[in-house]
Nucleic acid binder design. Structure first.
Length: 289
DNA sequence: GACCAGGGTAACT
DNA sequence: AGTTACCATGGT
């Protein structure tokens, strides 16, 4: 047992950044809220504590770690003001979404963790996804430390999962997704899937390669492209987005490919940002029923 | 007990 | 190319 002290502190002012919005908008699953504006995040094989007071942030780590790891991870160098202005002038829904959820940053997560997390996400609600990712980490990840009675484990990489049987994943209540996880692990260990090598490839090629994994279709591939590979033009289309596109823009399509084409046309290079603002705004306000 | 959840696949027209 | 049943589990 190792109690995490969080004795290091680095304070910094950041604009267009909201901790709650960035963590709870549905892009990541490994955080724990401590108090109103205080969170634990597990990422990069570390446990990070962060606090926010207005535009003043406290990262419980060294200045060096902040600049080498977390500034990039939270995409804090980018000018989101310009992005939000471009979107807000397009229509009243984007204007509202950007006004209300303008503190979202698209974080740069690990591709493997993102891939497995979104495989687990299918037909699951966000709290269930978080529970499954946590169960997988607790079972196979490295122990990182404890804080206030909670133990934290890293997300297990594909090498760590090499000899895990499909039945073991079923034991974690992953259901039919167990076979998909097993296939992804197998492909990674057989060098049929190299997520680091894919970083430099074209978006369409990455999508094509990801879809070779069982249980990975357009939506999950697009989530990996947006949340791990920073392909910010990509517009993942899920059940919420389908409903919201009908509600906002009258796009009554069942086929996600049609919605993606509309999004590509309408949002252009800012598709990924638009998707996150609209998704979180719509879901938080229960719009589109 | 029916219905749905940040989907995808296979088997149909 | 466009539907539909089904997949496993947990929550209303």
């Amino acid at each position: 047992m190792k109690e995490l002290a969080f004795s290091e502190k680095y304070k910094i002012k950041i604009n267009d950044f909201d901790l709650k919005q960035t963590l709870e908008c549905g892009q990541c699953f490994r955080y724990k809220r401590l108090e109103q504006n205080s969170y634990i995040l597990i990422a990069q094989n570390r446990v990070l504590k962060i606090e926010q007071d207005q535009n003043q942030f406290t990262f419980y780590t060294t200045k060096q770690d902040f600049h080498e790891i977390w500034e990039e991870y939270f995409d804090l160098k980018k000018d989101y003001k310009a992005i939000k202005n471009s979107l807000a002038i397009k229509d009243k829904y984007l204007k509202k979404a950007v006004e209300e959820k303008g503190g979202i940053r698209i974080i740069k997560q690990d591709p493997w963790e993102t891939l497995i997390s979104f495989i687990l996400s299918q037909t699951k609600q966000i709290p269930h996804i978080m529970a499954l990712v946590e169960a997988l980490s607790n079972a196979y990840g490295d122990y990182l430390g404890s804080f206030r009675g909670n133990d934290y484990y890293s997300f297990p990489d594909y090498k760590r999962l090499k000899d895990v049987h499909e039945e073991a994943y079923r034991g974690l209540k992953t259901g039919f997704r167990a076979a998909y996880i097993h296939d992804a692990v197998k492909r990674a260990n057989e060098n049929l899937l190299d997520l680091e090598a894919l970083r430099k490839e074209d978006t369409s090629y990455i999508r094509q390669e990801l879809k070779k994994i069982k249980g990975v279709g357009d939506k999950i591939a697009d989530c990996v492209l947006l949340f791990a590979y920073s392909r910010t033009e990509v517009f993942p289309t899920d059940v919420w987005i389908k409903r919201l596109m009908a509600h906002f823009y009258g796009i009554e399509e069942k086929d996600t490919a049609h919605i993606s084409r509309f999004a590509e046309e309408y949002f252009g290079e800012l598709g990924g940002y638009a998707q996150q603002y609209l998704f979180y705004y719509g879901r938080d306000n229960k719009l589109g029923k």
